[in-house]
Design a protein around this nucleic acid. Structure first.
Lengths: 203, 203
DNA sequence: ACCGATTTAGCACGGCCGTGCTATATTAAC
DNA sequence: GTTAATATAGCACGGCCGTGCTAAATCGGT
């Protein structure tokens, strides 16, 4: 009977160490040795909870995706539960603004997520998670647009497929630019651009 | 007096080998040993032309950026030299479509470029090149918009800063999605989305 | 043939990596 | 105190990395 540890908690703590390292140093920075150090453990301890390095990366990417998704789901709930006296546009804007790196937490997560997504191109094990999240986003936008059309807020002849990609790509692009060129891509500008783009849907 | 080699040509050939490897295997794939093999040289030969690995990566990123930029500049020329009887909108669309990974060559280049840009976050030596290219794109969009406004093709009160970011982010986002999720982001859909977005500028 | 500047080539080192594997520590239950 | 399942720990190996450095090949000019 050993030290009492909740394996789930330990796994989560280790994966958070991974995310921090990926955020700061890129995917390469998350070697087992570095992760162990960042988590305050010996490498053998890290390896007790994850069969190998790949499992650690997969688990971390999943955790990250779920954390991001949970924040967004909260906004989706607000939109779904909104009464008719509410400004839906503001709720929609707030929902999609949640995708943008507007503060430190979201920036760090977005950086790590971006690194994982790009790595997923050459690491097949990461692909399923990337695909799931991508599908989640596309589906969310698609449904939001269809609902707005049904409510008469958007034109009946809107090309939902094109507009879904347009918004999804804009969010990705804004995120990428904010992360890579932060001096010329401020949070205020991000929001203004999102607002402008959302406004262009009704035209 | 040795073998006759044009150093510039050799450097370019080696950097092309780098770009291929980055495209196929990510930044990690471009180790000196892999590059030497891909270029059909011994590692010593590669090292004769580049002081170190970092110089090789910087040079490659520059070459890539210039290659992409040259193709775009050709379209800019067409737009600048266009007479009044020409459909400027079509020329503008073609110009910006050049940023999208619509064929194999452009996809390969875009993948490599994306990998370099993301790596630039943690490799300071790559930052200047990323910044230059980014500036080039933003400036190009800015000038295109201002020109269209001056010609009366766009509203006088257009927010150029926001619209510049909107288009630039869209291009980045479309590229990222086409590269990472190609099954759901076809070339036709890319073009339709670009066209739709350009159309939204006059509204 | 000799010379020398350029080109080609690669050994060996220290460093870091992931992983197979072994060993020790821990602690509730008995 | 003993037991045993769990947790902590890390050695050593083979592999790959970039780089310091040395050596040989090349070939036009003399």
């Amino acid at each position: 009977m050993p030290k009492i540890v909740i394996p789930e908690d330990r796994r989560r703590a280790v994966s958070e160490a991974v995310a921090r390292l990926v955020s700061q140093e890129g995917i390469d920075g998350a070697s087992l040795r570095n992760v162990a150090k960042e988590a305050g453990l010996a490498i053998g301890s890290v390896r007790h909870y994850f069969a190998n390095h790949e499992e650690l990366m997969i688990f971390t990417m999943r955790e990250l995706g779920q954390r991001i998704g949970a924040r967004i789901a909260a906004h989706v709930d607000q939109l779904l539960n909104a009464g008719p006296e509410v400004d839906r546009r503001a709720l929609v804007e707030t929902l999609f603004a949640e995708f943008l790196p507007l503060d430190r937490t979201r920036s760090d997560e977005a950086v790590a997520w971006l690194a994982f997504v790009v790595a997923a191109r050459t690491r097949p094990a990461l692909r399923p998670t990337a695909e799931e999240q991508h599908q989640f986003v596309r589906t969310l936008i698609d449904r939001t647009l269809r609902e707005a059309i049904a409510r008469g807020g958007l034109p009946q002849d809107l090309d939902v497929e094109v507009e879904t990609l347009r918004l999804s790509a804009l969010l990705d692009g804004l995120t990428l630019q904010a992360l890579v060129y932060p001096e010329s891509t401020t949070p205020e500008l991000l929001l203004a651009t999102l607002r402008r783009s959302l406004a262009s849907f009704g035209t």
